[in-house]
């Protein structure tokens, strides 16, 4: 099964149909998605700024990340569920939308950046947890994370303004008929 078929299956699902036909579903799901995304970005931003030494390095990094990242993950799960529902409602349109594809790429980039930071840079955490600047790799990870998440937010808003008109005729639609 190729990706396009999976997209079609999602589009044909009961959840997608519910999102398309319920007047309440989309605004409620979208509002929850925005709140979840704001929580993800807000908590990630505080951790990233701490990596960059703002406002100071006095508060242990492990304490800041330990207190906030659990909220990041909880909100991320909510964002994925609500985002998935919004995607399902009009999957074929989102699938070909450049802004949506770039957003997914940014999400992947944020995940990779976080994975590299936690698996490699954090090995030396005891040496820079408090009172000293994070190593260059840590500061780069923090700056990259902020850049990626800001880009992702812009791309997310861009999606709504770039769906426009797609006049292409789907391949399986036959117009070569005569009545």
């Amino acid at each position: 099964m190729d990706l396009a078929s999976i997209v079609d299956s999602i589009y044909a699902s009961g959840a997608a149909e519910w999102m398309r036909t319920s007047v309440k579903a989309m605004p409620i799901v979208e509002a929850i998605h925005v709140m979840a995304a704001a929580t993800v970005f807000g908590t990630v931003l505080v951790v990233d700024l701490r990596l960059l030494g703002f406002p100071s390095t006095q508060r242990p990094f492990t304490r800041v990340s330990g207190e906030l990242l659990k909220w990041t993950w909880a909100a991320f799960v909510v964002a994925v569920i609500t985002g998935g529902l919004m995607f399902a409602a009009n999957a074929p349109t989102y699938y070909v939308n450049t802004a949506f594809r770039l957003k997914m790429l940014a999400l992947l980039g944020a995940g990779l950046n976080m994975a590299v930071f936690h698996t490699i840079t954090c090995r030396t955490i005891r040496a820079w947890d408090q009172g000293v600047p994070a190593p260059l790799a840590g500061r780069i990870a923090g700056a990259a994370s902020i850049l990626i998440w800001v880009t992702l937010i812009f791309l997310a808003r861009w999606i709504g303004f770039t769906k426009g008109y797609n006049f292409d005729v789907p391949q399986d639609v036959n117009l070569d008929f005569t009545f």
Partner: peptide, 23 residues
Amino acid sequence: TRVNPDANHLQIFFAPMNEERKN
């Protein structure tokens, strides 16, 4: 040819028929 069930504005894409309504 296609319906775009956008949450804000549903769009129906279509191929207009000729006056004879044959093609």
